[in-house]
Amino acid sequence: MWAKIKRASVENELLYLFLHSPVAMVATLIAVLCIAGALLAPWLAPSNPYDLASFDLMDSMVPPAWADNGDERFALGTDDQGRDLLSAILYGTRLSLMVGVFSVAFAAVLGVSIGLMAGYIGGRFDTIMMRIADIQLSLPAILTALLIDGVARGILPQQRHDELMLIVLTVAIGLSLWVNFARTARASTFVERNKEYVQAAEIMGMHPLRIMLVQILPNIMGPILVILTVDLAVAILLEATLSYLGVGVPPNQPSLGTLIRIGTEYLFSGDWWIVLFPSATLITLIISVNVLGDFLRDALNPRLR
């Protein structure tokens, strides 16, 4: 099988570059491990960190198992409520990834559709959409997300808001990221639309929707894939930041950002583990996604070769 991959890789540029980039392969491995850990959290985690009844305040602030006063039940120690940190991290990663993936998917679908149409149809629609994009671009993602979250708090009653918080968060992050996709898709569509294969399709009388989806879309997937990866890292980062600021995920479902916020309060008294382990997990996850994004960008950018 390896031989088969080797042979295919000589023909497939991307696969070849990937197999010759140890950094990209390691990053993929780490990302896959993180995703697997997140998906399998309910089975891997020693306890359920969302179930308040399952932990005991008597177990609060236990240091990691190998440290003095450590408890072997809690490999990475516990937090201020006696929650097992390892379980909390696994579930937190799951939450971070979920919000990240869904918000980027939302942003991608919205942004690519708008960009594709703006680039293909042009004219007024293009001018208006790009004006909106410009304005939104000057409002940084975190500000947009905060604003949307604030508005949601104003509209929804407190209780409903806590229930819908994850959705609000996903939409807020998604809405703050669509511009990147729209601009990239538009720019690439613009290039493609002037190519002769599109003109050929138009002359034949092909339906514009089919031209956009069947002819153009596959040709602009490269740059979109890059944005997809880069923005996944941004989305995870945004979720963590919002949760750290206390306006993100609901407090009874801690994500990595929430754990870091809780941990900061105890940092000064020397209880370092609550900050350290979630931070390390978060950074590892984001770095691996960013490394992949960088690899894709270089590999798919013909100008750099």
Binding site: I260, L267, V275, L282, I283, I286, I287, N290, V291, D294
Partner: peptide, 13 residues
């Protein structure tokens, strides 16, 4: 690469 991957608040902490 590490710089853009570490959240601002973690750097601060």
């Amino acid at each position: 690469l590490v710089g853009i991957s570490i959240p601002t608040f973690v750097i601060g902490i």
